[in-house]
Design a binder for these strands. Structure first.
Length: 427
DNA sequence: TCTGGGGTCCTAGGACCC
DNA sequence: TCTGGGGTCCTAGGACCC
């Protein structure tokens, strides 16, 4: 609980009146903490969530005990094992994290009506004008922290600032299990000594670019000429100039709590345990991914006009190939037909494949025109798939699969009318 | 260090249209 | 006819986030 600074009047002027108060609430080691609730024996031990120590894959989350050994998110699991062989490696459970994310959302909504979930485990609250209800920000934050712990069993950290950006950076500095308030006017002093990497949006590449021009700290960035940053890094450079001063994209008044607009794309991908050039395996994987994408489209009541294939070879070179279809679709068969064709046209025959991905995007309201026959077939497929979706809801994801029947049967079909394909009926 | 999976946003070139 | 400019859509790739 540090970082409170007296506001300089000259700096306060730039708020032009109303100073907002944003909270950024960020769960501590979220995936690990949820796993600990299911298995309390994990508490206090080095835990790695993401898969087995010998699997292909990366660390999704590491406990603080594991972080002491240098283990962190995005590290290859095998490297994590080298660094910390005594760590307990557990599989991730996305359903559990979604469930707890909902609980978190409920707690927050009970605290303030202006809540925006920024990801599965973090949220912004606009707490402007809540002093009469909760008292000063620090008091409010501690109350929220207690409620969160009581309702979910999980720890969080809370950053408080006059912009979302400052709130976010301060919650990061407050970790773990802390609260930090950056008083309006104290932003520059708070930000100046931080590494540029602490600024959201500055990753490996931008960090390197900035180091190359001798910029390492946010304070150095803030002193730079805006025009220089814009000329050097374009639109991004200009945004960066604002961020280095603690400003959101819209300045201090970027206060609208985002309406949930729904997804802009839906995708699934799979990395093989071992790279493969086996067409049967490749096609059944594409079929399975197409089903998963189709299912999610129907869940969201969306139809996609653009289908995209992602293909990663053994040497990690990765291509994406997209095509727009004349009629927007949410059907497994049509998605599969599209990406299968993209695969055939773009695969370097015989080259071993590491990863396949299927993405749908470009939503359309309706589906456009079809001839009567197409219409009838289309409706039949929709009923079949709806039944399959209900089966999966009841009995699990593996209860119904069209993959085996789709695979291999496309060659002798025309792609103009994939809806005429035979599919295994749910039984 | 042999590198997941699900997303968002930005850039840039070409097609096409007026 | 040697050749403008703006808008929009499509596609590919890449940086970045959790």
């Amino acid at each position: 609980m540090s970082g409170t600074h007296r506001a300089a009047p000259a700096i306060l002027d730039c708020y032009a009146g109303k100073v907002h108060t944003f909270f950024h609430v960020d769960m501590d080691a979220f995936f690990v903490s949820v796993e600990e609730l299911y298995d309390p024996s994990l508490v206090g031990r080095p835990v790695v969530v993401g898969g087995r120590a010998d699997e292909r894959g990366v660390v999704a989350a590491a406990s603080y005990a594991a972080r002491k050994f240098g283990v962190h998110s995005a590290l290859p699991l095998r490297t994590a094992y080298q660094l910390c062989p005594q760590a307990i490696f557990v599989d991730g459970h996305p359903e559990r994290y979604r469930e707890y994310s909902h609980k978190i959302h409920e707690v927050l909504q009970g605290f303030s009506p202006l809540v925006e979930m920024a990801s599965i485990d973090e949220a912004y609250l606009d707490m402007t004008g809540t002093e009469r209800l909760y008292g000063p920000p620090l008091k409010a934050a501690h109350l929220l922290h207690e409620r969160m712990k009581a309702a979910t069993g999980l720890n969080c950290s809370i950053g408080i600032g006059a912009s979302r950006l400052v709130a976010k950076i301060s919650s990061d500095q407050a970790k773990p299990n802390g609260v930090l308030w950056i008083v309006a006017g104290g932003e520059a002093a708070f930000l100046a000594p931080l590494d540029v990497r602490k600024v959201p949006g500055v990753g490996k590449v931008m960090e390197k670019n900035l180091h190359a021009v001798g910029i390492r700290k946010v304070g150095e960035l803030a002193r730079l000429d805006e025009a220089f940053l814009e000329q050097r890094f374009g639109k991004w450079g200009l945004a960066l100039a604002g961020k280095s001063r603690g400003l959101d994209a819209g300045g201090w008044f970027d206060g609208e709590m985002g309406a949930d607009e729904g997804p802009k794309s839906i995708s699934h991908e799979h990395t093989f345990d071992e790279d493969t050039a086996d067409l049967e395996r490749i096609e059944s994987t594409l079929a399975r991914l197409s089903e998963m994408v189709g299912r999610r489209l129907r869940e969201h009541k969306l139809k996609a006009r653009t289908l995209q294939l992602k293909l990663r070879y053994t040497d990690f070179t990765t291509i994406t190939r997209a095509r727009s279809v004349p009629r927007a679709t949410d059907l497994d068969t049509e998605i599969f037909a599209g990406v299968r064709q993209l695969f055939e046209h773009n695969w370097k025959a015989g080259a071993t494949v590491r990863l396949l991905g299927v993405q749908a995007a470009g939503w359309a309201e309706g589906g456009g025109q079809m001839d009567l026959l197409g219409e009838a077939q289309h409706e039949k497929w929709q009923r079949t798939l709806a039944a399959a979706d209900r089966m999966r809801d009841k009995f699990g994801e593996s209860a119904v699969s069209l993959a085996s029947s789709l695979r291999g049967k496309f060659k002798e079909r025309t792609h103009e009318n994939p809806a005429s394909l035979p599919g295994k009926k749910p039984s």
